[in-house]
């Protein structure tokens, strides 16, 4: 690791730690340090049952989306690529909507598993369609197939909303899809943290492969790399994290697009550092947005909304004040 990368990582981790502790202590109910020692105090119960799993989920969701965004931008050599490019977010959204529509009772695990399965199924469909296309190179095919699959699942989500009872199921579907970490529990994390952690670890470890893939298929092959296998493996790892993140938090847009750009400003263009750095930046943005979503107003704002607003402001700042 270069000196620059080491210093940047140290500061990012330190900032995340401070942000995490702050997020644990602030909220509508301010938790005092004395309460942390009293297991029966409301402060302890709020912190243990609600804030701690929520902060952990915010970090994992942010890191998953942002690392996946860096992978997509590297693999597709497109700075506008994001985690939703292959249809994973829309697929997960459809899985969530379908499970809420089809089940009369409620089971958080079923909804999350349906979201995860929907996201993975959408990407599998994208890869299958792309492999049967007869135009362009593989990257081009994947993008086109991803657009088609995204549109298909977006329409299916619309259909699910239309069919949902407007006074019972529809608000649940809409609220879930708007993105929120409200009520995330340890049991949600027990189920979805492993694929997110696996996805983050695999994408971070695949930095060198992404460097090679970002050179283009011809050059990569000339280095003896089987681009097809590498691409599928890297995209599968990213997809796994994004599907799990969407299953837990709903649709949280823009994080995967904006974080890699910030990471590149900090780390340069070496994807061995950019993917991990992007994960740290994304974790920080989602944590900050979620803390704002639950503390700024008397009622909770959807995370998807606050994350989009913050990300778009960052994007505009980057475009109007490009770093030298």
């Amino acid at each position: 690791m270069t000196h620059r990368a080491f210093t940047a990582t140290f500061f990012l981790v330190a900032a995340l730690t401070i942000a995490g502790i702050t997020a644990l202590l602030v909220g509508r109910y301010m938790v005092s340090p004395q309460q942390l020692l009293d297991r029966d105090s409301p402060g302890y119960r709020i912190l243990y049952y609600y804030r701690a799993p929520r902060v952990a989920a915010a970090l994992l969701v942010g890191a998953s989306l942002a690392a996946a965004g860096a992978v997509m931008q590297g693999v597709f050599r497109n700075p506008l690529a994001g985690p939703s490019l292959l249809g994973v977010v829309q697929g997960a959204a459809f899985g969530i909507a379908l499970s809420l529509l089809a089940t009369t009772g409620y089971n958080s695990a079923i909804v999350e598993l349906a979201g995860f399965a929907g996201g993975m199924a959408a990407v599998f469909l994208t890869i299958t369609i792309a492999s049967r296309m007869r135009i362009g190179d593989e990257t081009y095919r994947l993008i086109l197939a991803g657009i088609a699959v995204s549109a298909l699942f977006s329409s299916l989500v619309g259909l699910a909303k239309f069919l949902a009872d407007p006074y019972t199921r529809l608000p649940e579907i809409v609220y879930w899809l708007l993105g929120s970490l409200a009520g995330v529990s340890w049991s949600d994390l027990e189920l979805m943290a492993p694929p997110m952690i696996l996805g983050i670890a695999a994408t971070v470890a695949s930095g060198w492969w992404i460097n090679v893939l970002s050179l283009g298929d011809e050059e990569a092959r000339s280095l003896g790399v089987n681009t097809r296998i590498y691409r599928v493996l890297v995209l599968s790892a990213a997809t796994m994290g994004v599907a799990a993140a969407t299953a837990v938090a709903g649709i949280v847009s823009w994080i995967g697009l904006i974080s890699p750009h910030i990471a590149r400003i900090i780390y340069g263009y070496d994807n061995r550092y950019v993917v991990a750095g992007s994960g740290l930046v994304g974790a920080g943005i989602v944590l900050a947005c979620d803390t704002a979503a639950r503390t700024l107003l008397p009622y909770e704002l959807p995370l998807g909304v606050t994350a989009s607003i913050v990300s778009v402001i960052i994007l505009i700042l980057l475009l109007t004040h490009p770093p030298r």
Partner: peptide
């Protein structure tokens, strides 16, 4: 403390 879409759990716990 909330509505059909959203519950403010922290508020509920703090109300004891």
């Amino acid at each position: 403390v909330g509505n059909k879409k959203y519950i403010d759990y922290e508020k509920i716990v703090s109300l004891n």
